[in-house]
């Protein structure tokens, strides 16, 4: 991404780093124009920038990670699909009268192997976001997803799903068309498929709307993505009775990849480029592709029966309680 554009989407905690980088650019330009050797100063500043970058990105608070997860330039489902597949054909419609632009899917080939891919799709700008409903899928989106998964199961193609949504669409129309039923149905049916399912949280994992395509044999999460039971804003409004306490809520809810790994809810954390996935989308895509492929190879060696057994027991052990005797 060009630096000027990046400045437009600058997050608060990125600012010191960006200023330093701007200074570096100035010096480089000055050196070129005046033919003076500034290489020592440049090297020094570069080292400082690298150190700062490491410091900033290794000590992000949950609320800052949430900002990164929602970054308008963070790679989306379609960005990743285009970057990691040999070929890709989008398929449309829930076969009940609707094609949801907020949840996309289709058939693809990854390293020559046919798979079915799907995920929530946020927009790239305001106009696109309105068309995509900010990645909030309607009941028809979940029905399209399950239709594609059944297709995958029928033809023996693994399912790769990508989570990136603030939550399922909460509106009059969504309720009327059975948002709850649509998600519930997916949760149950995903336990029945004979093919491997790998789910990756690429950005924001918002509650039931995320889980609706998230029952999987492997659950992966990018380093700076988040997965929440309720958005920290909503949680703060309900539990603290104060929407401004969202930073506290983000901390308390344990929404980061590291926290969820500790709780035994996800399998693998995918490292992001030094300044986040949006700084080097292709690098992030390469990491994703490698991780998907490794997991796919491992899961493909298991019988369908074994896969389903393990999938159930994986979710079966989720939960922490006390056994009293």
């Amino acid at each position: 991404m060009p630096k000027t554009e990046r400045r437009n989407f600058l997050l608060d905690f990125e600012k010191p780093l960006c200023e330093l980088e701007a200074r570096l650019d100035q010096i480089r330009q000055l050196a070129a124009e005046n033919q003076v050797d500034f290489s020592e100063e440049i090297a020094q500043l570069e080292a400082r920038a690298n150190k700062l970058r490491r410091e900033i990105f290794s000590s992000l608070t949950p609320a800052q990670r949430l900002q990164l997860a929602r970054h308008p330039r963070r790679p989306s489902t379609l960005d990743y699909i285009q970057a990691i597949t040999d070929e890709w054909l989008e398929l449309h419609g829930d076969r009940s009268g609707y094609d949801d632009p907020a949840l996309v899917g289709g058939v693809a080939r990854i390293n020559g192997r046919p798979v079915v891919m799907m995920g929530h799709q946020k927009g790239r700008d305001t106009k696109d976001n309105v068309a995509r409903n900010f990645g909030m899928a309607a009941p028809g989106g979940y029905r399209k997803a399950i239709r594609l998964m059944k297709h995958a199961d029928h033809f023996g193609m693994p399912i790769l799903s990508f989570i990136d949504t603030p939550g399922a669409w909460a509106g009059v129309e969504a309720e009327k068309l059975g948002q709850g039923e649509a998600i519930a149905y997916n949760l149950r049916e995903m336990f029945s498929f004979d093919v491997p399912i790998i789910c990756t949280v690429i950005g924001e994992g918002g509650s039931g709307g995320a889980l609706g395509i998230g029952v999987a044999d492997r659950l992966l999460m990018f380093e700076h993505s988040v997965y929440t039971v309720a958005s920290p804003e909503a949680c703060a409004a309900i539990l603290w009775k104060d929407a401004k306490k969202s930073e506290q809520a983000a901390m308390a809810l344990k929404i980061t990849a590291t926290d969820l790994k500790k709780l035994g809810l996800i399998d693998e954390i995918l490292p992001e480029p030094a300044s986040g996935a949006h700084s080097e989308p292709l690098e992030a895509a390469a990491t994703l592709k490698q991780a998907l492929w490794n997991n796919l190879e491992e899961l493909s060696s298991m019988s369908p029966q074994k896969l389903k057994e393990l999938r159930y027991s994986k979710f079966r052990q989720m939960g922490i309680f006390q056994q009293v005797t």
Partner: peptide
């Protein structure tokens, strides 16, 4: 938190 969401699945 997420432990609760996963009970749905």
């Amino acid at each position: 938190g997420m432990l609760s969401l996963m009970q749905m699945a």
